[in-house]
Amino acid sequence: MPGKIITVSSGKGGVGKTTTTANLSIALAMLGYRVTCIDADIGLRNLDVMLGLESHVYYDIINYVEGHCRLRQAMIRDTRYPELSLLPAAQTRGKEALKVEDMVRVAHEAAEMAQFVIIDSPAGIEHGFRYATAPADLVLVVTNPEVTALRDADRVIGLLEADGYAPAQLILNRYNPELVRKNGMLSAETVVDLLAVDLIGIVPEDSKVLAASNQGQPVALDDRSAAGRAFRDIARRLSGEDVPIEALQERKFLRKLFGSRRKELA
């Protein structure tokens, strides 16, 4: 059976797509799954750096599509987790070098060799978004708890719904429960309510993410990182396990203690 193809998308740039792709890929490999991640951000290659694999790049996805190498040659195997491999983006080409049908073919070929194929999309809702989401069985929409990022996420969800291809699930990244408690940040409940989409995970704001990316050691590898734990939980959910969402559990507990505000207003 071919593996599941998951695309990580967002609309807005800088919300954590590449961070999410790197961490979920590592976390799934840590669970023992064969994982191939594909960097579809042609021209802005980053996934190799986040995974600490940049010095192993010889060929890229465009080289393969244009027939200059075999798929296996372009794929880099992670030495920490041999189950994990990366198909890097081309750095000196443009997005137009990758046609939608090429991306679909590459993703399906990768899915023949892996249990999960995770695709990191470029920002925007144009061609790069189209080719990255075209092969997906599931699209993970990454967003931050701020109005601009959420608006863009809603656009992406709307486009996916209109296409009717793949279901979308939301990852709320850079969440700050402390700030939410002080009413300074949109709560996960409000976000889910307004976007009316399935939530697959909440990743807290965590300073370890930046250091991890600079060191090429994704936080999922760090036992003490809260963001790392959140990514590992999402990976378990993707593998079919029923793992409660920690940040929501906390709030349910508080509400039990103090009663919900909605009830008070009623």
């Binding site: 701020e146 109005v147 959420l150 608006r151 809603d154 656009r155 709307g158 939410v180 009413n183 300074g184 940040m185 949109l186 709560s187 409000t190 307004l194 976007l195």
Partner: peptide, 16 residues
């Protein structure tokens, strides 16, 4: 901030 953000988000989403 939370209420204002929620209201503004609701408005842009609806019109979008």
């Amino acid at each position: 901030t939370q209420d204002i953000a929620a209201e503004r988000l609701r408005l842009v989403l609806t019109h979008d």
